[in-house]
Design a protein around this nucleic acid. Structure first.
Length: 202
DNA sequence: TAAAAGATCGACT
DNA sequence: GTCGATCTTTTAA
């Protein structure tokens, strides 16, 4: 099922507007659908915390393209995470999908993750990507054409249900409160500062 | 060419 | 709560 062409218009806005707007949106792939409860904004060249801060590379090239595509990247030797590219073409901004609630295909996802509580199945960016079956194959995938689609909420959530705070696990630009989540939702991932590294031996 | 860091998770005490 | 797995990408030299 294809997404709405209006999606592209919505995503073409500044990333700090788009990110909170994506809370409650539903991302679908095959039988599995997830309602987003936690996201983070990354603002390309204006954001030292973004993969795109130092300019285009083979990994981040999708972010420099038009909005409405997936940017998928590999981290920590074993995990994939997925972003929605937004902003105007060339701006390299994106929204990291950090957590959500599995609203369709729950049995399918549970079967692949025996013993995991339902609220934990997409709690964290790598778990969310895994639940949806997203990996490097989907880097650059068009969310309007499918097979991965995004359906925005028709209305804004009540302002008081949206919480903001620093992004998780960042060393650079750690103070910017560009993480947005649905306050009180059990599927939101725990906050963690960047892991400090031991002093370098010279 | 080499080394370090990393938008994490899950196991373990 | 702490810690190790695991390996790609980037950055430094």
């Amino acid at each position: 099922m294809a997404g709405s062409p209006d999606l592209r218009e919505l995503l073409a806005r500044p990333v700090l507007e788009v990110a909170p707007r994506l809370l409650g949106a539903v991302i679908r792939h095959g039988e599995v659908a997830i309602r987003l409860t936690e996201v983070e904004a990354y603002d390309g060249a204006n954001d030292p915390g973004s993969h795109a801060y130092s300019g285009p590379t083979a990994r981040n090239r999708v972010m420099f393209g038009p909005p409405g595509h997936l940017y998928c990247y590999f981290v920590y030797g074993m995990h994939w995470c997925a972003n929605v590219v937004c902003g105007v073409d060339g701006a390299a901004s994106a929204v990291l999908m950090r957590a959500g609630e599995v609203v369709e295909g729950l049995e399918l996802v549970r079967a692949a993750r025996p013993g995991v509580r339902p609220s934990d199945l997409a709690r964290g960016p790598a778990r969310l990507a895994r639940a949806l079956g997203l990996d490097g194959e989907y880097d650059g995938a068009d969310l309007v054409a499918g097979p991965v689609t995004l359906t925005p909420r028709s209305r804004m959530l009540p302002q008081r249900s949206i919480a903001t705070g620093p992004r998780v696990g960042l060393r650079r630009a750690a103070e910017r409160p560009w993480r947005y989540w649905v306050d009180g939702d059990p599927t939101v991932s725990p906050y963690r500062p960047a892991t400090p590294r031991p002093p370098r031996v010279v």
